[in-house]
Nucleic acid binder design. Structure first.
Length: 199
DNA sequence: TGCCCGATTAACT
DNA sequence: GTTAATCGGGCAA
């Protein structure tokens, strides 16, 4: 049924990988869910951490595709990215929201009072629910404790401007599962739709 | 060394 | 709609 995603899945344009991740299942240990929202970041993009070159923090982004880049956000939260394309292209997809499907009790405990809709609906929230920290920075995505399973049915993907950034905020590089109630924020009406069935 | 600010979230008014 | 929490990265000095 669900086929594990191999590293070659990530060895493509970040703008192809991002919508293809919608509907895939992300698991860490026995907790996780279906990816319903992501954003693409490319090193020529002023909003990308890799834009100003390689540093200790973003080094994983400059490495080979198929690895996790985890960084601290606002000194409080962790955010999870998947490195894409090829070594040195320094592109990544930010995982922004999941529809919880595995280990609900575990994730609720980690997230305290959060109800199911808010359990994994945000980049910081899903890292808290899956217990992702800097300890996972540089981990391969096709090996434990990570598990990534390809979607097994067609999905409708919407796109729109990215969230929470000030630079290049107009670029429509946010992708989401159309109509999902687990999006961190709704998509605007003007955005186009993409129907995907590959992967 | 100091300063500014962010790929966020929850708890306010 | 507004704001505090909280801290490391990146850049100016």
């Amino acid at each position: 049924m669900s086929i594990p995603l191999q590293q070659n899945f990530f060895a493509r344009s970040v703008h192809t990988v991002a919508p293809d991740l919608i509907g895939a299942t992300l698991l860490l240990g026995n907790a996780g869910g279906v990816i319903v929202e992501v954003e693409a970041y490319y090193h020529t993009d002023p909003a990308a951490h890799s834009f100003r070159g390689r540093t200790a923090r973003n080094a994983v982004m400059f490495g080979p595709p198929g690895f996790a880049y985890v960084y601290r956000s606002y000194g409080i939260h962790w955010c999870l990215n998947f490195v894409c394309e090829r070594e040195g292209s320094a592109s990544a997809v930010l995982i922004r929201a999941l529809a919880p499907s595995h280990g609900l009790a575990t994730m609720r405990r980690r997230r305290a009072l959060a109800d199911e809709r808010l359990l994994c609906s945000g980049p910081g929230r899903l890292c808290e629910a899956l217990a992702i920290t800097s300890a996972h920075n540089g981990f391969a995505l096709d090996r434990p404790p990570f598990r990534l399973l390809a979607r097994d049915s067609e999905v409708e993907v919407t796109s729109g401007p990215r969230i929470g950034i000030t630079k290049a905020a107009e670029l429509p590089w946010r992708y989401g599962l159309k109509g999902s109630r687990f999006l961190s924020k709704p998509f605007g009406k003007v955005t186009g739709e993409i129907v995907s069935s590959e992967w």
